[in-house]
Design a protein around this nucleic acid. Sequence first.
DNA 1: GATGAATGAGGGTTCATTCAT
DNA 2: TATGAATGAACCCTCATTCAT
Lengths: 191, 191, 191, 191
Amino acid sequence: MSALHGDKQEAILDAAYNIFGTKGFYETKISEIAEQAGIAKGTVYLYFESKEHLFKAVTRRDCEQFLERLSHSVQGCAFEEQMHRMAGLHLRYHYERRYHSKLFFMLPNNDPELMEYMRGFIQRYTDFVTQVLEQARVNNASLHAKAFIGMLERLKMDFMFNQEYEEAELLTTVELAANLFLGGCRAVPIR
Amino acid sequence: MSALHGDKQEAILDAAYNIFGTKGFYETKISEIAEQAGIAKGTVYLYFESKEHLFKAVTRRDCEQFLERLSHSVQGCAFEEQMHRMAGLHLRYHYERRYHSKLFFMLPNNDPELMEYMRGFIQRYTDFVTQVLEQARVNNASLHAKAFIGMLERLKMDFMFNQEYEEAELLTTVELAANLFLGGCRAVPIR
Amino acid sequence: MSALHGDKQEAILDAAYNIFGTKGFYETKISEIAEQAGIAKGTVYLYFESKEHLFKAVTRRDCEQFLERLSHSVQGCAFEEQMHRMAGLHLRYHYERRYHSKLFFMLPNNDPELMEYMRGFIQRYTDFVTQVLEQARVNNASLHAKAFIGMLERLKMDFMFNQEYEEAELLTTVELAANLFLGGCRAVPIR
Amino acid sequence: MSALHGDKQEAILDAAYNIFGTKGFYETKISEIAEQAGIAKGTVYLYFESKEHLFKAVTRRDCEQFLERLSHSVQGCAFEEQMHRMAGLHLRYHYERRYHSKLFFMLPNNDPELMEYMRGFIQRYTDFVTQVLEQARVNNASLHAKAFIGMLERLKMDFMFNQEYEEAELLTTVELAANLFLGGCRAVPIR
DNA sequence: GATGAATGAGGGTTCATTCAT
DNA sequence: TATGAATGAACCCTCATTCAT
């Protein structure tokens, strides 16, 4: 029973991730999610209180996964390598999700709880990067962390909105981002 | 009549900018825009074909204005100064719009024309920065341009979602962004 | 415009009276009311905030009308005649409404405002009868008023639930009620 | 097993009586009844065919009980005393049920079988009172019976909708009702 | 041009009932 | 017998858009 529950819950989350991610919150119909999950519309409401709650659950699952991967990615390596790895994770993560971008762009408005969660997520991400920078004794670690993340956010746009983007470019972009951050725009790549 | 037309059109755009910017596309009602513009609901449709078209007109007006300001901002000064000015413009521009952030975050989904326009806008912005970088013989100008813009995008989040942000911090942030870009995270500020 | 407004509002109230009265609140669909009123579903909401509000408006219109008729009915006649007239009004009023009984029996539950209004209505009705009794120096006027109204309420049930009830019986019933009240169950009718 | 069956059936009826009586038919959820009865939702359907059938069973149990108590109440006493006893039973019965009034006011609409049963119940009640009156040679016994019951119905409203009603008032009301019926509104109480 | 009353498609949600276990 | 997860029909209400005035 519990296994089934888990299965169905996961199926709904997966379907919701797909459709919310593709069409955004407002253009997604619960009936469509149910259909894709292979269940009846009403069943969705056995697992999630409302459309908003479902959206939040999807978001939460995705963000928590990212943070977990992040903390694994930097273990046991030097600062420069850490920056490369974090840049790589960020870009690859969103590259994998490039057809689900609406999850980040089309969220339900006026949902304070979601807004709060997103703020918290960004904070935790930033804090993590800040710590890495502090350990490497970078000045102004917090602002630098934000700038670093920002660069990556922007660089990801290239494939988020570009269907023809090739994975090879991804590697170049990762290198550039890390190197730019480490040495500025005129630096000679370290590795 | 044409002058009047202009007046009313502007009034609608202004109201739409306010409400779309505050609440996002989906949570905005045409009737509310009409009310704030001081006209009847039906009148909106004499000037704009649909809610989507109105949103696009608002976006277009705002983005074009930005690009215009951008090209003015870098005239007649050296590279480093140009980077500082662009960082300043970007951040100040969004600082002024910090209570209208929904214009950029909550746009109508599934509108290919808008998506296309946004892509085009980002392209033109990037191209402009790329040119500046190329004139200064920075390598990989295009990717660097994207990274630069990305840093700024992220840094702007601080005040977009933070009501207590003080204008003074803005200046520090601008300096940091430009310096990071110019010399990397360990650079000594140039100016 | 105002005339039209009035017309449509009345049309909705009339249709709502018919259907709420026939089927009760919960079994009535707004779409049905709209259809009977000859308008679109959405139009109902231009005139009434919600299904509950519409029901309350219908109820209010009906109850106020009753109280108005009541105060007219007793003007300028002696006590015994007053009692006969009030009994007559009560029974005839509900006889006219015998196919709309659901208006009184199937109201929306848990609507405190409606409950409050109904309480108020009953109070006003009782108060009116109480005054008549007090002017005739009947003891315990208030309780007697309630008992009088109660008799009538019960007597009305005969035709409310009985399709074959004939109007002629109505007159007998009115006489009996008034005489019973005036002289008890063994009294010889006064008129 | 039969005993158990009985137990569970009773438990459901008790819970249903509570909730239907408190909230009315339409606002009551089967799941709530099941919960209060300490069983699973599906189990309700092993004992009762549908929500409507359950409601009817509750109503039937309550009404039959009343009629039984009624016939006991008048045994072996004189007419005047009989009227007092019946008034007392009616009012006390509903006083005990004053927090379950919805059982009588919010019944499922459009259920012909229930309507039929209610008609039958009222008939049986009326017939019983009629017989008592006939034995006492009251004229027009049937209509008088209805009027008597009606008085009581109305008088009961006082506590049905009034949380602060005190039991002491009940006795006064019973006296008044019986005396009014026996001697009219100007009568001197007999006992 | 301007109005705003009218339209009606559309979707989130509830809950009585079923049925596999 | 008992369960409770699953179903899906049903309905209220919103709001972009139209059009007669």
